[in-house]
Amino acid sequence: MDIDLARRGQFESVVDVVYEPLQRYFARRTQPADVSELLNDALLVIWRRLDQLPADDPLPWSYGVAKRCLANHRRGSQRRLRLVGKMIERAPRDSVALGTPMAEFDNPRLEAALAELDESDRELIRLWAWEQLEPREIAVVLDMTPNAVSLRLTRAKKTIVSSMERQNVAAAGQEGLGHRREPRP
């Protein structure tokens, strides 16, 4: 009984830390209607694997659990649709919504730059910018080495910056052309 109480107490402490971040994690990556079910799945795995959870920093490990739940969910959704005979096209890997930006913010060049990344690099960027994780924490989520995460993250950031610079130059060129085409008085 004491062990059960201790386990419950440990789980409740972990849930206090991960409950809201996991909802945001799922909401960023799937349909709103699926968030609650995915949250249940992730919390169930955390409850069952509580003894494997790093007590000092449970969030990255919990994101790793969430990542697997989400992957299973996506495969299951596709599979269930196939089972009922619907013709579906496999969703492109890069079809995950980049999100609805804050109302007052519009940055189509940044969105275009993100769209140029492959999905695995885009997920690194999401974990860094949206989940606010550092490379060593992303490494826990993705089961990679921190060094590999750092290298790929740096490369992805450079790709984004280069893409935005390229778009800026192209836009400036368009504006220049526009000026030259103006009729002279």
Partner: peptide
């Protein structure tokens, strides 16, 4: 680095201003 992170954060559909259920 931080400027890019900040810009990307503004594209976050679940930015901290979006409420979620409390534990």
């Amino acid at each position: 680095n931080e400027e890019l992170r900040d810009q990307l954060g503004r594209l976050d559909p679940m930015h901290p201003g979006v409420p979620v259920e409390s534990a």
